[in-house]
Write a protein that binds this DNA or RNA. Structure first.
Lengths: 352, 352
DNA sequence: CTGAAAGCGCTAACAG
DNA sequence: CTGTTAGCGCTTTCAG
């Protein structure tokens, strides 16, 4: 009587729906819905019957349908430049962990540091109505652009990098401290001619490192030669080219801080190509502490950024923000720490 | 007259919907929908008016709602063990590229090689109704488990690894060839005592490499000592421990193939800790060609797996499969190539 | 404690 | 070329 047209109990699309279960048990879909979500309001007996039937039929919630009704998709969008950069990968992994534990899923988009692509990616991500967005803004992103793209009331937390003038949450590393630690380390090792690769681009964290680099040196009364400041980031090629440029100088530095570890690896390769070696002809300090930093030869001295903690915290902040959208924005700045290994060494030992 | 209750033209949830645009323009939502999707059936004038209005109002498609109607979510689920492994990261990046170009988004889940977690992740991913799934199955995954989890008619392509007995598409590297290339290279270099770290776990690609490793050696008439075969994969620790175990043998091998590059990096670290060096006391060949392989010291000789091509192809195959679900399953096996660098060297040069 | 009804935002038939 | 109608699968009042 309940089922008019026959068939092996399937919805229009051959899938098991609440309706199917409801018909089968002669209850309403409302009851089924409540029972499956363990609402205390349903009778224990009913709940059990419903859950049993759901299992028997192989029912799977359709979260998309629920989202349409509740305006809550349980999806978190993540936009970052490139999954293959070790920092991003670590952050993404941590985000996914906490999202999953919270019953949410990650919608991923990558921007390749390209503003147009970032715009397209964000537009597309929004169409899926994620409950929130975690973004590491592409270099050069303006407040207006980001705000505009995202202003539709969706909570945003900025990860690692930030665009200023935006009332969004931020979770990242203390880049000022990172650069200070690196510089102090090199100073402690006796270096006085210190250069830097990276920092002049449109990425907030890089700029902060560059600024702190210069300030630390000034504070110590150590002069900076403009020729020792070279641009670029995020690739081995950058590091190779940078170190080559530096070594071709009449008065090359004896130590270099690189804005990220990948660049630092490049610097070490560049050194090797000249039959030089990090920690001997030139001391190198990286930034980030990628997993391979301990695997390189010589092992890379760097500043550990705790990407894992950053990713976790960022996801936590976003989830909290989704629940209380109107609380004041938060800034979480995770302190990094120096990891002294072998790529930076005492000046006295150098064959300069 | 069209608008009964006033307000600045917003839907129930404060968002712009098709209805809003339709009311504003005094057309039907159907027309608006068609116009926005550039259906040729609508008059040019209407299309323009609609698109203009949509832009003015800041309309964003709600793909979730569309999905409910069309049973097509435009989402591709990706399940892999760990984003931080270089191979996975490269594959994921490539997948995201082609998905995005196809107007689709990635739903990400990670399994950490844990079968229970994989089950939970797949269950959750399915609830979002992705149009298809790309999966690199966790070690030990059985055909029954995977089929069961996924049988709901959703297209699946296996990436890099495969579970046999499953009529799913597969895209991966030619692991047999990879191991042959590695072994032949070591043989060419004069090695006759060759070991291997990894290959005895529940991961199809690893097993294939191990099998081909043994067969290549047999084919060449070179004996294998069981003590030279050690287990583990996917971490530097594995490589460190493995190489240490090998070197403690009474008759250690003179060369070792590692099942993946990360393990190979570990092996090189392990060597360094004994004041040895890859390519001198022991030759090392990796598998995969992670970006950092060229950055290590010595540079890692390895077999390039073209993760990028694998990821791209896998996504393409999935998208095609979604369109034609009933075509016979495809296998795409991308040939790898040897990248001889410095970590494997002629036996004569060794200080054995 | 359970059911009926409404509706989230969209698209697909089918008329007109 | 455009409008009407129906409904995807779910959750939420509101009655009973």
């Amino acid at each position: 009587m309940g089922s008019s047209s026959t068939g092996p109990a399937r919805g229009a699309r051959g899938r098991v729906t609440l309706q199917i279960i409801a018909d089968m048990l002669d209850v309403s879909t409302a009851t089924v819905s409540l029972a499956l979500r363990n609402a205390p309001v349903v009778a224990d007996a009913t709940r059990l019957r419903v859950q049993q039937a759901a299992r028997d039929l192989g029912y799977t919630t359709n979260r998309g349908a629920a989202a349409l009704r509740t305006a809550r998709s349980d999806m978190l969008a993540v936009a970052l430049s490139d999954v293959a950069m070790p920092d991003s990968a670590a952050i993404l992994g941590a985000i996914e962990d906490v999202a999953r534990d919270a019953g949410r899923t990650i919608l991923l988009g990558t921007t390749a540091e390209d503003l147009d692509r970032q715009e397209r990616v964000l537009t597309m991500l929004r169409e899926f109505r994620p409950d929130g967005l975690l973004i590491s803004p592409a270099g050069g992103t303006t407040a207006a652009a980001l705000y505009h793209l995202v202003s539709a009331g969706i909570p945003v937390v900025q990860v690692s990098r930030e665009v200023d003038g935006l009332a969004f949450d931020f979770v990242g590393s203390d880049d000022t401290l990172a650069a200070c630690l690196a510089v102090e380390h090199l100073l402690d090792l006796g270096h006085r001619r210190i250069g830097m690769i990276g920092g002049a681009d449109g990425i907030s964290s890089h700029r902060a490192r560059r600024r702190a680099f210069c300030e630390s040196l000034q504070r110590a009364g150590v002069p900076i030669d403009c020729d020792w400041l070279v641009d670029g980031y995020g690739s081995r090629e950058t590091g190779i080219a940078g170190v080559s440029r530096l070594l071709d100088l009449d008065e090359p530095p004896t130590a270099v801080m690189c804005v990220d570890d990948v660049t630092a690896f490049g610097a070490m390769i560049g050194l090797a190509r000249r039959n030089h070696r990090a920690g001997r002809e030139l001391s190198i300090v990286g930034c980030g502490d990628a997993p391979e930093a301990a695997a390189s030869e010589p092992q890379l001295s760097t500043v550990r950024a705790h990407h894992d903690a950053i990713g976790r915290r960022a996801a936590e902040v976003l989830i909290r923000r989704i629940e209380t959208p109107d609380a004041p924005p938060e800034r979480h700045v995770i302190p990094p720490e120096l990891v002294a290994r072998a790529s930076a060494a005492r000046l006295e030992l150098a064959a300069a």
